[in-house]
């Protein structure tokens, strides 16, 4: 990733810039959509961020954590949209992002979670409170570290930890373990 950034700020490489956009746009647009009322505004916010990144590409040489850099830029832009529209900046009233859940295998011989439990987890995630769901998504889907989430959302690491604990508890509770461990009883 560092290589890609260097191509952008050293060589003005537009292909590298396009690649950066394609790699991050999904995550950033979904993130923006959880802060803004419509998908179109989310796309605009992310596009604005990338226009700025290119215009100020020499700043990329100072970026130490690309995740927090990009997400924070998107958050600030989304907040600007909200304040300029006369809305409160800090409340999450954005589109309710729906998630789908698939089984993840670390290796082929790994035990897989049943289809029925996947459905249960999926609906439980979609019912989490907006802020809790956002934090859970940023960690589990986007792969962000707790301190990155804390920095991006301007909350303490403790808050991230607490919200993750709530999510883990609620999602764990809906899982029917008899389908997997029944034979052990």
């Amino acid at each position: 990733m560092q290589e890609l950034l260097e191509k952008i700020y050293r060589n003005d490489d537009q292909l590298a810039f396009r690649q950066l956009f394609l790699q991050y746009s999904d995550r950033l647009i979904v993130f923006a959509a959880s802060l803004l009322p419509s998908r179109e505004e989310a796309e605009e916010a992310v596009s604005d961020v990338f226009v700025k990144i290119w215009q100020q590409r020499e700043n990329l040489s100072n970026v130490r954590n690309l995740n927090t850099y990009l997400y924070t830029a998107v958050r600030n832009t989304a907040y600007n949209y909200r304040t300029s529209a006369g809305r409160m900046p800090e409340i999450l009233t954005g589109e309710h992002i729906q998630v789908s859940v698939n089984a993840m295998a670390a290796s082929p011989e790994d035990m897989l979670i049943s289809k029925e439990n996947l459905r249960k987890i999926e609906s439980a995630i979609n019912l989490l409170p907006a802020r809790c769901k956002l934090i859970f998504r940023l960690v589990k889907e986007d792969g962000l570290k707790y301190r990155e989430v804390a920095e991006i959302l301007e909350v303490s690491i403790n808050t991230v930890n607490t919200q993750m604990a709530i999510a883990l508890k609620k999602l764990g509770e809906v899982i029917d373990i008899r389908q997997h461990f029944g034979w052990m009883e």
Binding site: D26, Q98, N102, I113
Partner: peptide, 16 residues
């Protein structure tokens, strides 16, 4: 339950 919860991957729907 938590062991099983580790075995999921999320995808937000409606991506561009």
């Amino acid at each position: 339950q938590q062991e099983l919860l580790d075995k999921i991957s999320l995808q937000s729907t409606g991506k561009s």
